[in-house]
Design a binder for these strands. Structure first.
Lengths: 236, 236
DNA sequence: AGTGGCCAAGTGGCTGAGCCACTTTGCTGC
DNA sequence: GCAGCAAAGTGGCTCAGCCACTTGGCCACT
């Protein structure tokens, strides 16, 4: 009900112009390499100033959708002016956990496998440290959230794969939420700690298959715990 | 040597302004919530017109680094004006194949598993169609590139995981290159086709473990073929 | 036929002045 | 105190204009 009182949308003119340009490119079937109408003409036909048209074009330029040649016109780079939706936004919209947990399992089992293959002594030291941190917290009756986070981050680092690390980073926030809930379940911190130990030992031993298997088992129990309290409508 | 004849860099004014603003925010220790100087003042101190300052601010606004309040000033959203590096750019810089192939294996085995669990009849029809397309091309002595692409896209679609699909999309270009090279190896198209068949049958049978295993086997042979001709220095 | 100089038209780059809309601030009068 | 209001400050947008660059056509020269 307070829905009606949310801040009014106050669209900037240049945003509307960007929208119109996307529309124009789509409807007129413009493709890569085609030239947009001149700024002066666009301004006149849209009924706005040239400055606003220019701001809109700057937006498209920054997004890499358009190439502006001084004195030569403005050209489409791709077949469309639709911006590729940033991963972060998609994650936001798709807050639904299952997707995230699936992606996490896919990537992190691979990360464990790679970590077993590539970990350096320094990587192992960080892993040991993270595990010790979590162990101490759990002994003191804490949930071990920070230690858990550090352990998984250390595994990611030890895998030495910039691309997978980047993907993990983009769902880190969602994983953090699930971690909080999971570790608040009674008995969970101790079991989680034990599972971490098995992962670490496999990584230390340089056994990729064992590491992947241990990580998979760990993540599946986490996912189970988390999904027990989850319902599709509960988008929190 | 032809390095000297590459296109001249002709930086836009607004880009320089953006750079100056980032610098200013960093050097003056501006943090989230702090207000930028007024547009008129910035224009005067930078010695540029207000329009150029505004274009720069539009850039920062589009990148979500700054919030502009009509009549109230322009405020930093985060503690820095440095743009988070988009995944696409990272992929570009990290053109090195191993990373990409690792990520691909991690995600696509999971996709195969999910596809076996969730595929609808319509999904199966698309998979059948893609496989038939590839089979026909291979029979005619072609490489079957397009059919291969469609098959893997169909598996991704059948998994019904928007997040993994998005991740796949962001490395699609690199995968495409590797696909071209792989399928150009003599004998590869036929073997690849057979492997696709096994994947499809596991998905049709609704056997997640078999589907994941078949996909993993397929991707590992592809990676092997590709990596034989790859060397770290060859960044092409 | 090819080359380079030249010019005019078209287009983007950028400016300055100006007005409007909105927010913030602080004074005024109760 | 405090509500109301006016002024100052700030961003939104426009207009008119000049400059810089690209393109294409024409021409003189080789």
């Amino acid at each position: 009900m307070s829905e009606a009182l949310r801040p009014m949308a106050r669209p900037r003119l240049y945003e509307q112009v960007v929208e119109r340009l996307r529309q124009y490119a789509a409807e007129d079937g413009l493709g890569a390499g085609d030239r947009l109408p001149a700024e002066r003409e666009l301004a006149q036909r849209l009924g706005v100033s040239r400055a606003s048209v220019k701001q809109a074009i700057v937006v498209l330029e920054v997004q890499g959708l358009v190439e502006v040649r001084h004195g030569g016109g403005t050209y489409l780079v791709r077949d469309t002016l639709d911006a590729a939706e940033p991963v972060e936004r998609l994650v936001e919209r798709r807050r639904r956990l299952p997707d995230v947990l699936e992606a996490r399992e896919a990537m992190e089992t691979k990360l464990a496998e790679l970590a077993a293959r590539r970990r350096t002594d320094a990587d192992l030291a960080v892993l040991d440290d993270a595990l010790a941190h979590m162990a101490k917290d759990v002994e003191d009756g804490g949930p071990g959230v920070e230690g858990d986070r550090r352990f998984h981050a250390a595994v990611t680092a030890a895998a030495h794969s910039a691309l997978l690390a980047e993907f993990m980073r983009s769902i880190a926030e969602q994983i953090g939420e699930s971690r909080n809930e999971s570790l608040r379940q009674p008995g969970r911190p101790k079991r989680s700690l034990a599972q971490h130990r098995r992962i670490l030992e496999a990584v230390r031993a340089g056994d990729p298959k064992a590491a992947a298997a241990a990580m998979r088992r760990h993540l599946r129990t986490v996912a189970e715990v988390r999904l027990l309290t989850w319902t599709p409508e509960d988008d929190s």
